[in-house]
Computed example of a mutant assay.
Amino acid sequence: MLTHTQAIVISALKYGEADLIVKAYTLSDGLKTYMLKNVLKSKKGKFRASMFQSLTRLEIIANHRGADRMEYLKDAKVANNYMSIYTHPVKMTMAIFLAEMLKNTIREEEGNPALFNYLEYSFEFLDTTERIANFHLVFLLNLTKYLGFQPEQEKNDFPVFNLLEGVFQEIPINDYCIEGKNVDVLKKLLGIDFDALEHIKMNKATRNEFLNMLLLYYELHIEGFHKPKSLSVLKEIFG
């Protein structure tokens, strides 16, 4: 079926000498994988490798044949040229990290307009803001809503958060119950939008501890999840 839709690039992997295998999250059909033939060598083709950098938003025309198929693009153009993500080294590092997180968490090959719109809005905000130190924390926390394991905010006056159940409690009941500073940060970030980032102050140690907790939360709720390879670089930069 020939489909005209928007897509956000998640990853691009070199295949052979000149081909690319591109994973993208599409508005119409969720996660799709495309084979781009000879794109790394041809100077006359309609596709350029630079179009498939992490988080690039595209307008594409593709023949979508169904789930679990390698698809082929008929046409593509950049829908929104980011102003700073690919030129700002810290933003670029964050973009690589977030793209890895999306690659490790999104599996559904079906349309989810709410998730697509969230990703589109988030990356446009990242492109235009200068307050980025805690952006990834808010992004990942809010992403859980669309992945189906958002922390419940009921009883958020309780001092314990159960990572396994995603709820606040009065006392710990298993090895995945956390207390203290990470719970305080969780309560502060739950439900906020990126506009509130300017009011969030966090030192390196607190930020890294909370990120480690978030990644454990993802690991507990997504089968086969593994930490991004770019995690160590991200932590180093925000130190």
Rank of each mutant, 00 (worst) to 15 (best):
K187S: 03
L27M: 03
L234Y: 04
A7P: 07
L211W: 06
L141E: 11
M83G: 04
Y15L: 15
I200K: 09
H221L: 01
P228L: 08
E109D: 11
E209R: 08
A18W: 05
P113Y: 07
F161V: 14
L197H: 05
D19C: 02
I96N: 02
K91F: 15
V183Q: 08
Y15D: 08
G148A: 08
L164H: 15
T26V: 00
S54Q: 12
Y82C: 05
D175I: 14
L190Q: 14
L40W: 10
H88M: 09
E110I: 15
L115N: 01
E165S: 14
G239L: 03
E236A: 03
F97D: 01
R69C: 14
C177R: 08
L231E: 15
N134M: 12
G239M: 11
I178P: 07
I8H: 02
Y25N: 15
C177W: 13
L214D: 09
I61W: 01
E209Q: 12
N212T: 12
Y218H: 00
Y15E: 08
L190P: 09
P228C: 08
E71P: 15
P151S: 15
V167E: 11
H88E: 06
V90E: 12
A7Y: 00
P159G: 13
R57E: 01
L211I: 13
H88Q: 05
A76K: 02
N63Y: 13
E152G: 15
V160S: 07
V233P: 02
K229Q: 10
L73D: 09
M1V: 04
L186C: 05
E59F: 03
A67G: 01
N142S: 10
E170Y: 09
I178G: 06
P172N: 10
L163D: 15
T3Y: 09
G191I: 05
K44A: 13
T93I: 14
L189R: 06
T3R: 15
P172E: 15
V185Y: 04
L163Q: 10
N208D: 12
N63E: 11
Y34K: 06
V90W: 04
N112Q: 04
P113V: 09
S232G: 02
H226I: 12
N142F: 13
Q6C: 11
L13W: 06
L137R: 05
L27W: 00
D75Q: 02
R207E: 02
K14P: 13
L214W: 01
F210L: 04
L190G: 04
L102M: 10
S122Y: 07
D19F: 05
N112S: 04
L189V: 01
L27V: 00
M35R: 07
F194E: 03
M70K: 11
E100H: 01
I178M: 07
R131Q: 04
M51L: 11
D193C: 00
Q6M: 08
A114P: 04
I60T: 03
L73E: 05
L2A: 06
L143R: 10
F47P: 15
T3H: 10
Y146I: 07
A12M: 07
K103L: 12
F123D: 00
Q53W: 03
T5F: 10
Q153L: 14
D195C: 01
S230K: 01
Y25P: 12
